[in-house]
């Protein structure tokens, strides 16, 4: 019995965005990463080719993290004491790009200075030739202070700067505009808020090909389904032609998964949770895989094994 292959036709496409700049383009990166360009839902190659495969970013910190799971620290070893070495290890683990998350304070509890932030960024840039995203500690004042310094010191690198949120985006957007960088627009799991922030950022004159949106998400078991559905809705709206939802999406399953109790805690948990390390990695893997299927263009991961697995999944999904 002949079965009709039911194809959807969409009018919209996801914006193509390139992170990083090579020397020829005014930066120093060995290569760039391009995401976006989808004309249909994730990996439905029979409807439209997926021109750029989703990218894997590995999150590193500017110093040894205080609050990371021992499982993660074990996996990376001593490199966590040096952002440059860490970036190299992340590249070796298969990262497409590096996400450097700046700490709020130094190891002694003093606020991170702009000079220290710039130094950490420089270390990463010189140690590793992958494109780089730099996120502030997530507090408005600190983010603005550190990111402006970083942006100015790395003019032309097409870094991805974050985090732009509705309460605090103008300074980061302004400095990204002035220094040729990109911004990461984060909103709390809501389609309309995501659109609104994109409108506000483009209103400042930021071209669409320099914005990535970050709809945020929850780990499996911790609000995953909200993030998942918001991403599906954003992508559907994008394909239906809604310009302000047509940005590639970055999500941080690593961050979300590794703050769950399942990943963080080894002792005193139910036996039914199984082996700690394997469970923690599974948690990150499944969160990331789900988001990949919902339309993620950049997955930010923390554990090298998750990177290996998601690489396998992406390869499998790209075989159309």
């Amino acid at each position: 019995m002949p079965v009709e292959i039911l194809k959807e036709t969409w009018t919209g496409a996801v914006q193509i965005v390139t992170l990083g700049a090579t020397p020829a383009e005014g930066g120093t990166r060995g290569r760039t990463v391009t995401v976006g360009g989808e004309r249909t839902l994730p990996f439905l190659h029979f409807e439209a080719p997926m021109p750029h495969r989703p990218a894997l970013a590995v999150e590193i910190k500017d110093r040894r993290p205080d609050d990371w799971s021992p499982v993660l620290l074990r996996a990376w070893g001593d490199v966590v004491d040096d952002p440059g070495a860490w970036a190299q290890a992340a590249a070796a683990a298969g990262a497409d790009l590096i996400l450097l998350a700046l700490s709020l304070t130094d190891a002694d509890g003093r606020p991170t200075t702009p000079a220290a932030a710039v130094a950490a960024v420089r270390k990463v840039l010189s140690a590793c030739s992958l494109p780089l995203a730099v996120f502030g500690p997530g507090q408005a004042d600190a983010d603005n202070e550190l990111l402006v310094a970083v942006a100015e010191a790395t003019k032309g690198e097409r870094l991805l700067l974050g985090i732009c949120e509705d309460k605090n985006y103008r300074t980061i957007v302004a400095t990204a505009l002035a220094n040729g960088h990109l911004v990461n627009a984060r909103t709390p799991m809501d389609v309309n808020l995501a659109k609104q922030l994109n409108i506000l950022i483009t209103d400042m004159g930021m071209p669409l090909d320099r914005i990535i949106m970050d709809p945020t998400t929850g780990a499996v078991g911790y609000g995953f389904e909200y993030g998942y559905s918001v991403m599906e809705r954003l992508r559907l709206a994008a394909l239906q032609g809604d310009r302000m939802t047509q940005l590639p999406m970055l999500v941080t399953p690593g961050f979300e998964a590794w703050k769950t109790k399942e990943a963080k805690v080894g002792n005193g948990v139910p036996a039914a949770w199984g082996d700690w390390e394997a469970r923690a990695i599974n948690w990150e893997t499944l969160t990331a895989l789900g988001l990949l299927e919902a339309g993620a263009d950049i997955l930010v991961l923390r554990h090298p094994e998750s990177v290996r697995r998601l690489r396998l999944a992406i390869e499998g999904l790209m075989k159309g």
């Binding site: 078991g221 995953f224 399942e262």
Partner: peptide, 20 residues
């Protein structure tokens, strides 16, 4: 069958089949 694999799968299933 391993608890550390079945547990996240069961939770994922629970999440996805939640009435939004």
């Amino acid at each position: 069958f391993a608890p550390e694999a079945v547990y996240p799968l069961l939770v994922l299933r629970q999440n996805i089949y939640t009435d939004p």
